[in-house]
């Protein structure tokens, strides 16, 4: 059972960190919370530069870099230039090189199941956010079913933070809320239900859902309550 409050704490810490180590400690905290083997954030540049943090062993990281496994890693091959989340089972592991890579990875403590979220950042920036575990298919399918959407959002929040540490990168546009989003979040904070908020703003509940979904993403939150709390703590809404 993943505790929502703990998850929100981890994301708060990630959001407020000003050091790269903050990314690393967030991967450890998430791994422990989800009770899986690994959480890894991996930035791959079009120039071939890599940056990563996560819970893989130092030995595996070393080995990966030394052998330049970026070239044959089916996860990289299967995610690069794409934007849909990928269950590792669905990748092409049929080549001899890929199979050898997989068995070596497992020997280094990487689990047999993975779920990787490709992220397209600004100016061709690309990153992967991977959850990894050792379990059977049924358990993993259920895990993705339950946590997949959260992991997609969390991966983007990692990438947003990582971009802050790259001075040469063009920063992402400021994550400010639009006036309509501020209105919607304010009314929710005041305790209105969705139907009442939609009615007050003269919009449909569907439109409201899109406002909330976008506001949540801009605020780095996973659900509406969390988003409202963040908007208040940042002074974006006042109630």
């Amino acid at each position: 059972m993943v505790k929502r409050a703990r998850l929100e704490n981890i994301l708060e810490d990630l959001d407020s960190t000003t050091k790269l180590e903050g990314l690393q400690s967030a991967t450890v905290a998430l791994r422990d919370l989800y009770q899986i083997h690994h959480i890894v954030y991996h930035w791959v540049d079009s120039a071939g530069d890599q940056y990563g943090c996560g819970t893989y062993s130092d030995a595996w990281r070393q080995r990966y870099l030394e052998q330049n496994y970026l070239r044959i890693d089916p996860v990289i091959q299967g995610c690069y230039q794409r934007f849909h989340p990928v269950d590792w089972k669905r990748l092409d592991w049929s080549s001899k090189a890929a199979r050898a890579f997989l068995s070596e990875a497992i020997a280094y403590g990487v689990g047999n199941q993975g779920y990787s979220v490709p992220i397209r950042g600004p100016n061709g920036q690309f990153a992967l956010f991977t959850s990894n575990h050792d379990c059977d298919d049924a358990y993993w399918n259920q895990f993705i079913e339950t946590h997949g959407r959260d992991l997609i959002l969390i991966g983007h929040y990692f990438n947003r933070k990582a971009l802050e540490f790259e001075p040469v990168r063009q920063p992402e546009p400021a994550q400010s809320l639009s006036p309509r989003e501020v209105d919607a979040m304010t009314l929710i904070a005041l305790g209105y239900n969705r139907a009442q908020v939609a009615n007050s703003l003269s919009i449909s509940e569907h439109t409201l859902r899109v406002y909330i979904e976008s506001a949540r993403f801009k605020l780095g939150a996973l659900n509406t309550t969390h988003a409202v709390a963040r908007a208040m703590s940042r002074g974006l809404i006042v109630v």
Binding site: F83, R120, I152, L177, S178, R180, I203, V210, S214
Partner: peptide, 28 residues
Amino acid sequence: FLPTTGSVMVNEVFGHLTGGAPIQSPLI
């Protein structure tokens, strides 16, 4: 299809039709 986390028509060309709030989420 394109994710609304990047460049998309609804925000860049038709943003005035959504009440001035860019639609932005990896889940949309």
